[in-house]
Simulated scan of single mutants.
Amino acid sequence: MRRIAIIGCGGSGKTTIGRQLADQIGVPITHLDAVYYDDRWNRMDPDKFAALQEELVAADTWVIDGNYASTLPIRLKRADTVVFLDLPAMTCLWGIAQRGWKYRGGQHDSSGVYDRITWGFIKYVWGYRRDMAPRVRSLIAEYAQHADVRIVTSRRAARKMLTELKAAVH
């Protein structure tokens, strides 16, 4: 467990789980939202974003959290561990609401990740399992056959998986 890709809907817990796993293996976590968007929510050029990820995954050890299906193969090809947080929409929306209250829509501690809750984002979260999850599963099947793939469908299963992965490191 040296190269970990964490994928999932907004509010699924990618950042929380990623931070814990990064601490376990002693590397910083890369939050793709903080890379892709600037502080005014301008997007990075897609080619530059893909090239940056190629550089990130070339390292021997990393933890990267983020969805971005268009560049997911870059991470999946090199990951030895893939965590797909495929949680129900209501669970993710609750996670987003809790995060919003905690950070008041601002930056999450020092991660560089900011909340930006829009109606479009809420619709994306609501339809994620129907629209995006099948694509993510397909990409995992195609590009991560070599990896330890963990598909997590509840907060309880996420806690159990973290315990198992932490034990595997020791």
Rank of each mutant, 00 (worst) to 15 (best):
G95A: 03
S111H: 10
R43T: 13
D65R: 07
I17D: 03
L139E: 07
A58D: 14
V57S: 02
Q24F: 07
D23F: 07
R40W: 08
A22T: 00
A89H: 08
S12H: 06
I140W: 08
D60H: 09
S154P: 09
A5Y: 04
G8Y: 03
R130F: 01
R156S: 11
G120V: 02
W119F: 10
D80E: 09
I151K: 05
G66M: 08
L72E: 00
V63G: 07
C92G: 03
F84Q: 01
A79C: 15
E55M: 00
V27W: 04
V152Y: 05
P88W: 08
A97G: 14
G8S: 01
W41P: 04
D65M: 11
K14Y: 09
T71D: 05
A147D: 02
A22L: 05
V83Q: 02
K77Q: 11
K123I: 00
E164K: 13
K77H: 13
K14I: 08
L32N: 03
G10Y: 13
R156G: 02
Y36G: 00
G26F: 02
T30I: 15
L85M: 01
T15R: 09
K160V: 15
I122S: 02
E164F: 05
C92D: 04
D65K: 05
G11P: 10
Y36D: 05
V113G: 03
F84M: 01
C92W: 01
G120P: 03
K48N: 05
V83T: 11
D148S: 12
E142A: 09
Y103K: 15
A168T: 13
I74G: 06
I64G: 08
M132G: 03
R135Q: 11
Q24M: 14
V82N: 03
D115T: 15
T163C: 08
